[in-house]
């Protein structure tokens, strides 16, 4: 019974951290689907979101609820700006050039944060104050419940948006064939902009949830969850929205189970080795797109 409870508790931990990975992975996968690029600066938007929340709440004393909205808005605008300045001029360039630029943007964001906020970690208490509940012998923290609830709402909302709105349909069309999408009257540039805005807004949500868990701000805090979410996106099948959701949750569970039952030190290594395993066994990922095109 104790073992079972332990496993259930770890499962919840895994779902909590996995939810955050899933939110970040959605940004990777959507941008990849639409713009065919891996935005390696995406992880740093989490950091931007965490610092933005800190500035709004601790320095400007904005009400936490409003601060959350402002943080999400700030990150969305940040994502749009990065796309306009750094990636749009490279729309027809080689993929490698775009990839290197994304890594450059990542360093730029980290060093800007270092310049503004210095290297010393800034303690920042969670703004999520929900009491924990106990079911049987398992205690579920308020943060876990909020994280799972927020992620569920975001996922359902995003799925409805993509499949049932005109903008969502234009995103699907652009991700498949930009030229044909243009012929339908779809503004491809605007679609890419909106995708970056949504991806960055999701990263902001992830950043808020992440910082509520770790309660300490560092300019590099986005790097590790960012790269793990990238693994999650590949695990789920890059380009697939449900794939990113599943990949994130699976990776979170693998991480927490590894920490609890194998080794805390080895947990990250196990998580990253998943990338190798996926690339060896099923490079298209769990929900990777099937090639069903007939000629």
């Amino acid at each position: 019974m104790a073992l079972l409870n332990g496993i259930l508790a770890q499962l919840l931990n895994g779902l909590r951290i996995g939810s955050i990975y899933a939110l970040i992975a959605l940004g990777y996968t959507m941008v990849y689907g639409i713009a065919k690029m891996i935005n390696f600066a995406h992880g740093d938007i989490i950091m931007v979101g965490a610092y933005a929340l800190y500035v709004f709440v601790s320095l400007l004393h904005v009400h936490p609820a409003l601060a959350v909205v402002l943080t999400i808005g700030f990150c969305a605008v940040m994502g749009i700006t990065i796309e306009k300045i750094a990636y749009k001029p490279l729309r027809n360039a080689q993929r490698l050039a775009v990839l290197i630029t994304a890594i450059g943007v990542s360093y730029l964001l980290q060093n800007l944060a270092l310049l503004i906020f210095k290297a010393t970690p800034i303690p920042f208490g969670s703004i999520i104050r929900v009491p924990s509940i106990t079911v049987g012998e398992i205690t579920i923290s308020g943060l876990t419940m909020v994280t799972l609830a927020v992620t569920a709402v975001v996922m359902v909302g995003l799925t409805l948006f993509v499949n049932h709105t005109k903008m969502g349909h234009s995103m699907l069309a652009v991700s498949e064939d930009q030229g044909a999408a243009k012929l339908m009257g779809i503004n491809v540039d605007r679609t890419i902009t909106i995708t970056f805005a949504i991806g960055s807004a999701l990263a902001a949500v992830a950043g808020i949830l992440y910082i509520s868990q770790y309660e300490s701000l560092l300019p590099t805090l986005g790097a590790l969850p960012g790269i793990k979410a990238f693994v999650a996106a590949v695990l789920g099948g890059i380009g697939s929205i449900p794939g990113a959701m599943i990949g994130g949750l699976v990776l979170g569970i693998i991480e927490s189970m590894s920490k609890a039952y194998i080794s805390t030190q080895l947990a990250d290594a196990i998580v990253f080795s998943m990338l190798v395993v996926v690339l060896l066994l099923k490079p298209s990922g769990i929900l990777g797109k099937l090639s069903i095109e007939k000629v």
Partner: peptide, 16 residues
């Protein structure tokens, strides 16, 4: 649009 349904393709034709 190979991944979308026939109806979704047709509706994209009326996008504007």
């Amino acid at each position: 649009f190979a991944q979308l349904s026939v109806l979704q393709n047709l509706m994209l034709g009326a996008f504007t």
